[in-house]
Design a binder for these strands. Structure first.
Lengths: 203, 203
DNA sequence: GCCAAAATTAACCATTTGGTTAAACTATAA
DNA sequence: TTATAGTTTAACCAAATGGTTAATTTTGGC
């Protein structure tokens, strides 16, 4: 894909997003970005001083959004269970909007932990952390006691993985002669199953 | 980690697995692999002609193994629930051994679906598909009735995602001042929670 | 002990890669 | 028109990297 008739900066950002998404921070080549943008490599460094700066510019905000969903929405007037239901709804809304971003971020963080450690630290939120909300509810005997860390991981697993692994399921089910698409219907089914899981843990 | 007193080929494979797992195919450096293996870089090329060959050697069969996890072990003498427990054990064993494999496969499949469609088809197994096993058990009224697709996705989500998102959790928990100590201990906790989920669905 | 084959190494090599430089081109305001 | 600031390019550069070569050491059968 060659890009023309656009402001250079936009061309670069689009090309960079394409290449970074495909190959990651390490695998991406500045030359390929320049080629796709249809410009000279030096121009990349003119607009964005270096590779990492360009990377940051491309994914500015994406990381933040991704990690913000790990915070619980703070309507403390509602029971914890209802707040978690809202949390799940938000999670699915986010993931339906950015299914590619999720896997990209996960891969980048996995492969390049030291770099991302700092970027994650920079993300600040005034929302309470899910762990704390759960622990608090347990202390007040509002809910049954269980390991909040494990629960949080379970919950996010149930929400996120279906999107990340979507293509695998699609291929696998099809090649086994089953009917299954990433239709909104199926997503709703999965969402319900997550809420069922919450209800089970809270019973 | 320096490796000594082992057959060179084994040393190389162990070191390569460590480095590939940490940095991926692109990010891995042959020099680092050589250093960890405690040998000369040229020796890598003596045993494995080039980087990709070495990568293939390290992850030879891993893909096959991964997809075989999706088949239920065919010991039909056991109850379905026990077979699922074995399935979960196998899944965790595999993922602990190749934590980077899951995300690697996910990314590859997402990126290049047609290529993987064939690879998945090539992986032939005479093992029954999890969906079928569940449907069969439901038909025989051995277990409560539920959507086997959603259950399968739930199950694999609970198993795979903690490994895929492991680095994120590690960093996030640490940066929030939480204790998330010994990794294997926590993995066992999560594994138990998956089995608890199975028990819940089968009750 | 001798010798050939296998294993191992140090020193290189060619290419790639992120990044720089200085010159050239372009728009635009005075 | 021309001075100026902003934009774009070709040509480089140094470092890193995957890979090679030729020589040296080790091994094992005779």
């Amino acid at each position: 894909m060659k890009l023309k008739d656009e402001k250079t900066e936009v061309k670069i950002l689009k090309a960079a997003k394409e290449v970074f998404t495909k190959h990651g921070l390490y695998g991406a080549r500045m030359q390929e970005i320049a080629d796709i943008a249809g410009i000279n490599k030096a121009l990349l460094h003119y607009y964005f001083r270096n590779k990492e700066k360009l990377f940051d510019a491309v994914f500015e905000g994406a990381l933040k959004k991704y990690f913000e969903q790990m915070m619980v929405i703070g309507d403390t007037s509602l029971p914890v269970k209802d707040r978690l239901f809202v949390f799940v709804d938000n999670m699915f809304t986010f993931l339906e909007e950015y299914p590619m971003m999720a896997i990209f971020i996960l891969k980048e963080v996995t492969l390049n932990q030291d770099v991302f450690k700092q970027k994650i630290k920079q993300i600040k939120s005034n929302q309470p952390f899910l762990i704390d909300v759960l622990q608090d509810a347990m202390d007040k005997k509002e809910i049954k006691s269980f390991d909040p860390f494990v629960f949080m991981i379970n919950l996010q697993s149930l929400c996120a993985y279906p999107f990340i692994a979507g293509p695998i399921y699609k291929n696998m089910f099809i090649s086994h002669g089953y009917e299954w698409g990433n239709t909104h219907d199926n997503i709703e089914k999965i969402k319900d199953s997550v809420k069922e899981f919450i209800t089970f843990k809270f019973q």
